[in-house]
Design a protein around this nucleic acid. Structure first.
Lengths: 340, 340
DNA sequence: TTTAGCACTCGGAACCAATGAGTGCTAACA
DNA sequence: TGTTAGCACTCATTGGTTCCGAGTGCTAAA
């Protein structure tokens, strides 16, 4: 176990390294008001801390920087979650004060706030598709061979899909079709829609007219869900500001990973509930080996869950950032609750 | 005026510098099969070309690189537009072969192709808002206090806006409202919609029931157009690959400019018709001083016009890129024409 | 157990020389 | 008169050397 003095020194080093990105030396630590030991004493302790794996040297005569294990210990045991500054409070209150109506708006705004306040990159994963249910479907003809289906889900998400219609179909027929669809699909999970279409609804529609056959084909294609929960990213360029990412290659791999979306989405999807931190190599991607990710969940009603994440260097301002992420996920959850 | 030999040498230098990003020396040029002069002769010509402002030296004993004026001359007089390679043809044919139905799909696909084939960043500006006309409007209640308005424009663009509705409003009333709106707004330019709403439609709606007053307020807010034509960007990270952007600060300023959207949009909006090139400082933004931008227009029906652009370093593969941009704008125009 | 003192290590900056790619100029050549 | 060979010159790059300073580890004294 670590002695009190070791804890104190470790905390000072992590705090300072997070601030300056420079290795911390013994002399510097001993000058801190809160510290009362000579540099020599501190050097001894630092040597011990290094031996235990909490600290690292860049070269034999440099000061110490926290290792990943050091960050992990810091986050688990030494974190003193900061309270929000008035600037932070204001920005959040201001943004969530305005009444929002659409899921996308809330998410984009949250991503914006988070990346602006932290100078890191914020990522928000939409709610799991398999829990989203269809609330309403509306079909509107656009031309004699195109129509748009507007889907509204119980999460307040609205989306539209354009599809081809056979030339012969009539407006009244379309109306009938919509009625049947609404009757049969309301409350059905989005992911089950294609199956339902194939099973019961196909035969139902068939009874009405023969060109439903064609229309149905196209509609089915249009309603085929893409399954991928959407990613919203804020402050992509913030990574460029961090001194540890002076190296173009690192930036390139991180950027293209974010652009890919796929891996990031799967990473966030598998993260546990509550506030989580992944430090450096704790995530499986080489591109993110110098990054930390903080995740929190937000909720939609009771079960549906999305993920709010913040991506920064391992040298992240954990105390400030953790409260911010928590606070924002709370606000999001609350906003969505009010919609019901 | 330039002699034939000078033209030849200039062309070799630009071609080679575009390929290698390295200053070109006289010895190297004289070794080219197409060139029959000694290094000394070439040096003389290069000195003249430099004096005329077409070439630059990085330092007194380096080879020459094209100046912006050199690129400009090259583009205007020496360009031999390449024909598409079979790979390029295939990719384009494949993508445009599939039937697409929605404006966004076409645009996103085009941006993707362009950035993939060129390794530069592609930017597509949507059609000018002021020319887009409303084709149809549909309102669907979502809950007792929310409704979604779906707008369909003559460009095949579909979008939805969620707005609040007063509690008292009834489904039948809403239907009446939609009928009036459709009757009065069909074919009206999007940009004029708010004005029309205020003038004629307000009084019309008022005749029907008093809570239209409230509903109208919200609807008006929802239909207030944001005016900004949308930007679609492909291959944002491609800039990172270019050797001239090893410098983080350059990348940062370019990236954040793209992220901003505002300036880029205005830049593209003011570009002239047809294929245009802006080389280096020919554009007014310091962030883009080492970039070239190629733009082409695509058309929607007869008047409506959007812009397709490619952003890369001044050392751009102009001959390949120009044909690609042209070809893609042609394909887009054609696709949209087929929709009518 | 703590601390002062001292030798040691290593990165970074400054300086220097050697190298080589490339130029400009001059004089000879066709 | 236009072209070219030859040569002196320039300058970025590379590698080696030295110096400096920040910081460590170890030992011995308090």
């Amino acid at each position: 176990m670590l002695t009190n003095r070791q804890l104190q020194i470790l905390k000072v080093i992590v705090d300072d390294f997070i601030l300056t990105a420079q290795p911390v030396g013994s002399r510097y630590i001993s000058k801190k008001e809160t510290v009362d030991f000579s540099p020599a004493t501190i050097r001894n302790e630092m040597a011990d801390l290094e031996e235990m794996g909490f600290l690292e040297k860049l070269h034999s005569s440099s000061g110490r920087a926290p290792s990943e294990k050091g960050y992990r210990f810091y986050v688990d045991h030494l974190l003193s979650p900061s309270t929000l500054s008035s600037r932070e409070k204001n920005l959040i209150r201001e943004s969530f004060g305005k009444k929002t109506l659409e899921f996308e708006q809330v998410v984009e705004k949250s991503a914006g706030i988070l990346s602006d306040l932290t100078n890191y990159t914020s990522i928000i994963l939409g709610p799991e598709v398999f829990e989203t249910r269809l609330k309403q479907i509306q079909i509107t003809p656009l031309s004699h061979e195109k129509a748009v289906a507007v889907l509204v889900t119980n999460t307040g998400h609205v989306e539209h899909r354009v599809f081809s219609t056979p030339l012969e179909i009539k407006a009244t027929d379309l109306e009938k079709m919509v009625n049947i669809l609404n009757e049969r699909l309301k409350g059905v999970a989005l992911i089950e829609v294609p199956e339902r279409l194939n099973k019961e609804i196909f035969s139902l529609l068939k009874e009405h007219a023969e060109h439903f056959n064609d229309a149905f084909m196209y509609l089915r294609a249009a309603l085929a869900n893409d399954n991928s929960a959407k990613l919203y990213v804020g402050g992509k360029t913030n990574i460029l500001m961090q001194p540890e990412f002076k190296d173009i290659d690192r930036i390139r791999s991180i950027m293209s990973m974010i652009e890919e979306e796929k891996d990031i989405a799967s990473l966030l999807k598998t993260s546990d509930k509550g506030i989580q931190t992944m430090i450096g190599h704790e995530n499986p991607f080489i591109a993110l080996q110098h990054c930390s990710i903080i995740t929190a969940n937000y909720y939609f009603g009771n079960q549906q869950v999305g993920t709010l994440a913040l991506l920064g260097p391992t040298r992240m301002e954990y105390n400030r950032v953790v409260t911010l992420v928590e606070e924002l996920s709370r606000h999001m959850t609350e906003t969505f609750r009010e919609w019901y």
